[in-house]
């Protein structure tokens, strides 16, 4: 990149040369045009009168939400317990299933790069691209409404996430250590246990706790499609316009999420 130009004895300095500058301007222009175009399309589908009315509506809604209906809190214990269970058990299932998938997906441990690895990668992408709510939607039609569908949904959604991070961790391990173990004459399984597992264990634990934290948040909505937890109650309260109950549930959700985030941060801190 030459951006120092000598012009009539003066050295002109520009941050970039002409072509790079041009490319940047063109990309900005294209990005802006894309944004404006998309906004235009959305704007066509929007009833702007509602939007302008929204602040008033919001004020009205907020007024109806106070004070929260504290009396209900005893009835929320069970839904919150279910929510936490969905997240925890779902994470456990996901973590257990993610290990073999990650092992097959990592370039340095997969049994076959041409056959097994693409399958493992497809499992990861498929699991990651489908939102847990869509998984729940499917599972509710299959296994019926309830906590069970929620657990499986969270599990299926999290396999991809855990496996992706885990296989990246496996690919980043120090090959020297593995080689040293292999040099002792260890079998393949022994190499894994002594050479690979100790290196990825902290990452593995960190990923599990991180995903658990995310899953707490995700499992608060599964009830909307019938998959158990506090979302069920929230949906009912909203459809029946019991706003004081709604506000209490929102507070409970915030509380749970903050606590889980705190726990997850503490545990990750302890591991690293």
């Amino acid at each position: 990149m030459m951006s120092v130009v000598v012009k009539g004895g003066l050295k002109i300095w520009q941050r970039r040369d002409r072509n790079a500058q041009l490319a940047i301007w063109v990309s900005w222009l294209a990005a802006t045009a894309l944004f404006v175009y998309c906004f235009q399309l959305i704007s066509e589908k929007t009833i702007w009168a509602f939007v302008w009315d929204a602040p008033a509506q919001a004020g009205d809604l907020a007024a109806r939400m106070v004070p929260p209906d504290w009396g209900l809190i005893r009835h929320l214990a069970r839904p919150i317990w279910d929510t936490i269970n969905i997240a925890t058990l779902g994470t456990v299932i996901a973590v257990i299933l993610a290990v073999p998938v990650a092992y097959c997906a990592a370039r340095n441990t997969t049994p076959s790069v041409t056959l097994v690895r693409p399958v493992a990668l497809f499992i990861i992408v498929a699991s990651r691209s489908i939102n847990s709510l869509i998984w729940a939607l499917m599972l509710v039609t299959i296994v019926g409404p309830g906590v069970f569908a929620g657990i499986i949904a969270i599990g299926l959604r999290s396999i991809g996430f855990c496996a992706k991070l885990l296989y990246e961790a496996i690919e980043e391990i120090d090959e020297g250590q593995v080689e040293a173990v292999r040099a002792t004459g260890a079998t393949g399984a022994q190499v894994s246990v002594y050479g690979i597992v100790p290196q990825v264990l902290p990452a593995f634990a960190g990923i599990s706790v991180f995903r658990w934290d995310i899953n707490i948040r995700e499992s608060t909505v599964l009830g909307l499609v019938g998959a158990g937890g506090i979302g069920l109650e929230l949906n009912a309260a909203i459809t029946q316009l019991h706003w004081t109950q709604v506000s209490l549930m929102l507070l409970v959700i915030i509380g749970t999420v903050i606590v889980s985030e705190w726990v997850s941060a503490k545990v990750r801190h302890a591991i690293i």
Binding site: L10, K11, I12, W13, Q14, R15
Partner: peptide, 13 residues
């Protein structure tokens, strides 16, 4: 915008 006066640029060089 990185449009410094020419005198600054001369001095920098």
């Amino acid at each position: 915008l990185r449009r410094f006066p020419q005198s600054d640029i001369d001095e920098a060089f």
